[in-house]
Design a protein around this nucleic acid. Sequence first.
DNA 1: GCAAGACTAAGACTCAGTCTCATTACGCCC
DNA 2: GGGCGTAATGAGACTGAGTCTTAGTCTTGC
Lengths: 151, 151
Amino acid sequence: MPIHDPSWSAYAHAVLEDAGHRRGGARDEVIDLLAAQPCAVSAHDIEGALRQRGRPIGRASIYRALDTLAEHGLVKRLDLGRSEACYEPARSDGHHHHHVVCEMCGTLTAFDDPDLEDAIDRLGDRLGMRIDDHDVLLRGVCRNCGGPGPR
Amino acid sequence: MPIHDPSWSAYAHAVLEDAGHRRGGARDEVIDLLAAQPCAVSAHDIEGALRQRGRPIGRASIYRALDTLAEHGLVKRLDLGRSEACYEPARSDGHHHHHVVCEMCGTLTAFDDPDLEDAIDRLGDRLGMRIDDHDVLLRGVCRNCGGPGPR
DNA sequence: GCAAGACTAAGACTCAGTCTCATTACGCCC
DNA sequence: GGGCGTAATGAGACTGAGTCTTAGTCTTGC
Ligand SMILES: [Mn+2]
Ligand SMILES: [Mn+2]
Ligand SMILES: [Zn+2]
Ligand SMILES: [Zn+2]
């Protein structure tokens, strides 16, 4: 994912307009900031970044924007076991990744794994339920913190 | 899992004693209550159940007990996307299940799936990290709420 | 039994997230 | 371009799960 993803940004604006939403400065800023994130960020991260960018946005507006985006499947809300939730853009083609969090330093690493996705897809049938979405979160020790792997 | 699992309860007490913990009424009640749960419960569920049982326990003691148990791998803390976390006993042999939550009615269903576990196990190698633990949460629509499956 | 210190209860406190409501401004119609 | 209905916004009060503090109680080894 490029550091700034104008395609996601444009797509998000298109979906919202299509759904009858008006345009507003606050939500536009949130969308613009999310498009520039390589990985998940918290609402407070967003608030801080926008303030630093010289465009402070009310907390309520940030949460409202995130809710609206999530309702349209444009962002994914992540519970990473921290005190606050994180959010990241969701691609229109459904391609996505999951995360490993280091138990020592808290570093978040993204990965994606087709075998895992296949296993989850097969589960829908096995359970006789329609599965719309899934979260996977691994906890471990990253290389910096002494995990295995080529030293 | 039986509705009351004395083996887990005994195991938990043994582990704690072994780790040098003294015994106390509050934590004993929490352990006893957890041992009787078929699936995950929240701290508030526990508080209410113990109050109703005629043995009200301070909120801080409940959280302290849950933290202690989690530190020793005796309970698993679950973020189910609700406002509060849930907790369930963790078996000593590592056998565990994951959950599907119904987006309509909120019902929690447990499942376990060896293929999924295998895929996750293989991931450790692929990532070059030691993976200690993992969460999987599916979201979908249960049969009662109109999901697929034999009507 | 006694003492050290682990455990507990009550409630003050924190802080992510929600709600309210007065104000602003988007977008459609004329 | 100007007006209007209404969606979007910001400030800050509020909620509630979870944490911290502190004074008092109970376990356990001696
Ligand atoms: Mn996936
Ligand atoms: Mn598993
Ligand atoms: Zn690390
Ligand atoms: Zn349901």
